[in-house]
């Protein structure tokens, strides 16, 4: 693949020197070559994204779990090992619990805040919005250390389940706010007015009119906050206690040892799980819109 791109780029560079060419023809050719090299570059990039993961998945089936050469044959033993590991299961359950609780908190807070940001004008609104986004950009190590010394040295609270959940709920908040405010901005408020005119109180209006429309956005926000919590290591490192089981901490200590045949299997299972979830999600909702909307301009604007 690499050589292919090389040739194409080279061809593209020499093209303008083509003597006495018909300008239109030349134009089309350049266009074609450019498009071709664009595809080639895109292909290379996807390869860059996928090759390490692909190799990891391959190794999860290999008898020699660290490197491709020498290849010693295929096996499912790594998966059996992974699924049989009690400590792995414990930390998986721990992480699922933490992520679900933290994301739920973040979602409730984020949805409420989004209503405030889109429906009301109030003093310091922009400041409020900015601080709602900041937990996302503060480096994890700094947030982790700050919360650790705050809890431990100021409040005398030892690290544990609650501290991890609190940290993660804060970390997830911006993702919910970004996605839900984006949706609320495009929401047709006259629908709500109509409901109110017909005598519905605010709660009924929210339940029957607003919620069904913004539910996908809320779901996406929850999912983002959930994933952020589930994959976080550094904040959990500083805030987890001896009885807090966290999958990333379990994995990190295995990776540090470089000696866990089940590691590839666990990691591959995570990739498979995400793949299925993502495929389903993409068939049902505008995932791209939410994702791009999260990290960038709202697509629907």
């Amino acid at each position: 693949m690499a050589t292919e791109t090389g040739e194409r780029t080279e061809a593209g560079e020499t093209e303008p020197d083509y003597p006495g060419a018909d300008r239109l023809l030349d134009h089309r050719r350049v266009e074609r070559i450019l498009r071709g090299s664009l595809y080639a570059v895109a292909g290379l990039l996807l390869a860059f994204l996928w090759v390490p993961l692909g190799i990891m998945i391959t190794l999860s089936f290999a008898q020699n779990p660290v490197t491709l050469f020498p290849f010693e044959g295929l096996t499912l033993a790594n998966y059996q090992l992974a699924l049989a590991s009690e400590s792995m299961r414990q930390s998986l359950v721990g992480s699922l619990t933490i992520a679900s609780v933290a994301a739920s908190i973040a979602t409730v807070l984020g949805v409420l805040a989004s209503f405030a940001l889109t429906r009301y004008r109030f003093k310091f609104r922009e400041l409020y919005r900015t601080f709602g986004i900041i937990p996302m950009v503060v480096p994890g190590i700094i947030l982790g250390v700050a919360l650790r010394i705050y809890f431990q040295s100021l409040l005398d609270v030892l690290p544990g389940f609650t501290t991890v959940v609190l940290a993660h709920s804060l970390y997830g908040l911006p993702f919910v706010i970004l996605i839900v405010t984006a949706r609320l901005y495009t929401f047709d408020e006259s629908l709500e007015e109509a409901a109110r005119d017909l005598g519905a109180d605010p709660i009924t209006t929210f339940r029957d009119v607003t919620f069904p429309v913004i539910a996908p956005a809320i779901g996406a926000g929850f999912l983002f906050a959930w994933i952020r919590s589930f994959e976080d290591y550094i904040r959990a490192l500083f805030l987890a206690g001896p009885n807090t089981d966290v999958l990333t901490i379990w994995m990190f200590s295995r990776i540090k040892q470089l000696d866990a045949p089940e590691l590839n299997a666990v990691s591959s299972l995570i990739v498979f799980g995400v793949a299925v979830a993502l495929a389903v999600a993409m068939n049902y909702g505008n995932v791209t819109g939410y994702v791009a909307g999260t990290v960038a301009e709202d697509e629907e604007n």
Binding site: A42, L46, L49, W50, V51, P52, L53, I55, M56, L59, V66, T67, L68, I227, F230, E231, Y233, T248, M251, F252, I255, L258, L263, S267, I270, V271, V274, A275, A277, L278, A279, M282, V287, T288, V291
Partner: peptide, 29 residues
């Protein structure tokens, strides 16, 4: 394409970093 890009994006950061541990090193892939 977007699926292929989003999948690594949604996959645990730790898993992605680990996949490079296998790739690099004098005896790496």
């Amino acid at each position: 394409i977007i699926f292929l890009v989003l999948l690594p994006f949604f996959t645990m950061y730790l898993v992605r970093a680990y996949s490079w541990v296998l790739m690099f090193g004098p005896g790496g892939v």
